[in-house]
Nucleic acid binder design. Sequence first.
DNA 1: GATGGTGTCTGACAAAAGTCAGTAAAATAA
DNA 2: TTATTTTACTGACTTTTGTCAGACACCATC
Lengths: 291, 291
Amino acid sequence: MTIDAIARTRRFHRAVTSEVGALDSSFLGRGRPLGPARVLHAIGNGVSDVAEIRAHLKLDSGLMSRLLRGLEDEGLVTVTASENDARRRSAALTPAGEVEFAEYEALSDQQAGAILSRHPHPEALLQAMDLVATALGFDRTAIQRVPPSDPRAQQCLATYYGELAHRFSGGFDVNLSADPEARDMEPPRGAFLLAVLDGMAIGCAGLKGTDKGYAEVKRVWVAPSARRMGLAGLLMRAIEDEARGLGIGTLRLDTNSALPEAVRFYRKSGWTEIPRFNDDPYPDVFFEKHL
Amino acid sequence: MTIDAIARTRRFHRAVTSEVGALDSSFLGRGRPLGPARVLHAIGNGVSDVAEIRAHLKLDSGLMSRLLRGLEDEGLVTVTASENDARRRSAALTPAGEVEFAEYEALSDQQAGAILSRHPHPEALLQAMDLVATALGFDRTAIQRVPPSDPRAQQCLATYYGELAHRFSGGFDVNLSADPEARDMEPPRGAFLLAVLDGMAIGCAGLKGTDKGYAEVKRVWVAPSARRMGLAGLLMRAIEDEARGLGIGTLRLDTNSALPEAVRFYRKSGWTEIPRFNDDPYPDVFFEKHL
DNA sequence: GATGGTGTCTGACAAAAGTCAGTAAAATAA
DNA sequence: TTATTTTACTGACTTTTGTCAGACACCATC
């Protein structure tokens, strides 16, 4: 590693640390110390289980308890016993808590907007931020099954289609392609998987059930900021696990030679090329894999 | 500002906050709380004046005093009265302090190296980090006069020459160009300015004194991560101030039509095009400005 | 239904960080 | 010169955060 690279990384760190400090101190502007503010924030974001909050914020159980008591006393939070395990407790915002949470959200949005709006080329900045965020947290990536109608899934697909339109010489119109019906990509016929990192979808993959003795792998996409990190491999392994769980023994997929990195990837990971098996106008390369 | 852009920015913030937390806790690994560690770090980085440290770390004067006393008791720091103002005090590392500081530096370097080395495409990551760091801190940019021999200046120039070689169809060899002698760009004949942000040079500009009744502006360069932010304007205003300070009334510069953004910039900012005034092989556009 | 383990809470501390009024010494202004 | 301001220091706080040993209720298991 060159000295210059280290220096640049550390400079990034300095810059970002002071920025983070500024955000944190803006959180203090609402007259509440950082501890309770962070807990309120976590609860507002749907982390309701007390143990989960504790793990998330790395808090001692005693401290956690007191912070929750404080928020209860303020009338922002109610804590009730969990349904299936009465030892565990679950926190929820009161209406007043919702209001207070919204104020913090507005502060954060404002801060984020300020950074973006004073930049001459926001999209470049956003792409850089995506790349950095993905690089820093990649190990925390979680693969989760969602319905294809999930808004994050839809967003991935829209980006995917946009990219295909850009890379295929004749463009790409999803309506001309064999668009899987949503329920073919939901249990019990199939599945749709999202790779999520820090709350943002950075990749997806679909498993489409058919009645022809095999299932198809569709819509494998990795966000530009996460490429070459091995995410496609993670997604494909997860898709194969899903298939096995559904009792599917054979997988097929189609792709296009205009996407050489995809073709290379499938060749490398145990897929064998087979003759055309559908009449979709876009693909020109076809693969099969037995589980 | 679209919702998605805000969400992406906030996601970046989340990712980076947890990373920064990890660095901070690695600082705790040396058995010293964050407060003293930060003060030691500041002193090691050349912020010796007590008032300056206080401003930099936003510490109360009482707290500052106690932190310094603690570091003195540990034998890491000596605090002496300032030379020109005996009320002010100035801190310096003892040999033991130097050693301890080096340990923190090594920790930071290690952390930075770890981030880079686990990434498949470090240069892209570095560029993204530069862009983000510059965007976040741009307002803190400081313009400072340095000798052209300053290593940061040399690094800017090397990058500048590399870029010219890349953009001129016939390449660029600085030895064929009229390379200003160093002392022509130092007071009292001229000046060399550096734009520094978070310790990193992100731009430069030179003022080269001549005996021909005018001075030349040379080597105006802005780092890719800082372009379109108005830094060239800042640098040029500073160069003009330098020229005025040296009693120079007329400025000239040459550039090349292969750098249209530069030509556009000079046209926009009060320079008038004039006929060729030198026999340098590279430039083909010439400007003059009266102060 | 006894046993051991888990999740939360409380009390009792301790460390770290932050606050503030007052003091002393030096610099600056009147 | 004297008065005022500036800079750092000290003492006496408070708040925030972190730690730890029980206590208690609950769950799972034999």
